[in-house]
Write a protein that binds this DNA or RNA. Structure first.
Lengths: 252, 252
DNA sequence: CATCCTCACTGGTACGTACCAGACCGTACC
DNA sequence: GGTACGGTCTGGTACGTACCAGTGAGGATG
């Protein structure tokens, strides 16, 4: 029984309930199982129905649950859960039913390398925040990230709480929501420093993402993330709408 | 003036309001403009605030609007069109400006492993074609593939010319075009046999794709491809679209 | 036995209310 | 002039109520 109670506090009730439902769906129930009805959840957690619905709404949007009118709300098949889209690490992990956390290694202003400066549209002598973090899922190290962020639009970034979703800080703290990104992916093998940070053996295969993210036309992030290839997988659905009208595969 | 009234009827109010807001945001306002506040929209359209919020919620989820607490709700910049590609190796390489070629290692009927049989909807004792190939780009080995194909819908597959695009054979030879796939990607490190086949050093980082492809409801292919992580990169454009992954391969 | 109807569930829509929290501006104060 | 404060905008959270609509089981009816 994990029906922890929902309390008033800094964390919203629907966020707490959402976590409880993820826990329930992933760890106690399984794919295709029905979760308790909305009215049952109301009394179980002592919240209103609109709060229950808001929690479920977000999990449906994330693909973890699906609703069937007149029948109930059900846990989705895992393979439909994770699609490759513009998600932050935190969102990504929650969608997989894992609890994200972060170890902050450091944030300091530095002069970025030329390729980073070019990607962020910075002058050669400009400085930028250099943020190093280890990202964990259920307490296990998954990824090592080095991100670069321009200083001008993001003053005092070093005074923020950088243990959570940076995308939420950008959006809620600066009004700069990430809405597009270009990403390149390749493979590497872990060197000594990376292996130590990820608590992994030397030469562990890594999935390396280089991402440049924008808010509108403004480049806000250049981040290289090294994921443990043995613990992290990417799922993609290549659906029929991806093919376009032509019978042969689309180009460009 | 496009403030059409919201009426009771078969179409929900929040859906009508949503359309009205799209019209307003796209055709009357523009990027970065503020839409009327929620309380103004309430009285303008004579609906409750929760209905207003529900309409805005869905447009925020779609990326058309963004909210800033204390300031207002604003029209987003148009988001990237992102489509994914269901490309074969041959198509993929040609798009990169490289010449694809193939070394056929062998094709034989075998009893597939249980996970493969399950993915292909085969009985436990059924046999399937097992096809091993090395894929090259401009003469250099890039990927090692092991594919499984059901025998029943694909008689005489072993008599075809398997040095080119298998997807073209399926489509032109059997009338079975691949129109959907599920793909999973992770990292591995090359073992001795794989390294030799790819003419690569031991422990070369690999990008491993497992793909199950379908023609309609019929699973036609289960293939595991091991790409050299140092020679092969994947490039993708990511939009905020929750539905829309968008791997777009480019030259690495 | 088959069919229809009712009823008790499920989620879906919509309302109104209350209060909290962030952003901004003008004014009073130092 | 600069600062602090308060009023008043903004969106955010949460409650309760009412009723509509789809589903399915079980009983009444032919």
């Amino acid at each position: 029984m994990t029906s922890q109670t929902i309390t008033d506090g800094p964390r919203s009730k629907h966020a707490q309930l959402r976590d409880a439902l993820v826990e329930l769906a992933v760890h106690e129930l399984g794919p295709d199982a029905a979760i308790p009805s909305e009215r049952v959840l109301m009394s179980t957690y002592d919240v209103s129905r609109s709060t229950v619905r808001k929690s479920i709404d977000s999990l449906v949007a994330d693909g973890l649950l699906r609703r069937i009118h007149g029948k109930g709300t059900f846990v989705s098949r895992p393979r439909l859960e994770s699609r490759l889209h513009l998600a932050s690490f935190s969102q990504d992990m929650r969608r997989r039913g894992l609890t994200p956390s972060t170890v902050l290694l450091g944030i300091e202003p530095h002069r970025p390398p030329v390729d980073v400066a070019a990607a962020l549209d910075l002058d050669d002598d400009a400085r930028a925040w250099r943020l190093d973090r280890v990202r964990l899922a259920d307490g296990q190290p998954i990824a090592l990230e080095r991100g670069w962020y321009p200083q001008a639009p993001l003053p005092d970034l070093d005074r923020r709480d950088l243990s959570g979703s940076l995308y939420e800080i950008l959006k809620d703290g600066y009004g700069l929501g990430i809405d597009a990104a270009e990403q390149t992916l390749w493979g590497e093998s872990a060197d000594v420093a990376t292996a130590r940070r990820l608590d992994a053996p030397l030469h562990t295969p890594l999935l390396v993402f280089r991402r440049v993210s924008r808010s509108g036309d403004l480049p806000l992030e250049h981040v290289v993330s090294r994921y443990r290839g043995d613990r992290y997988q990417i799922h993609m659905s290549l659906g029929p709408d991806a093919l376009g009208p032509a019978p042969r595969t689309t180009k460009g």
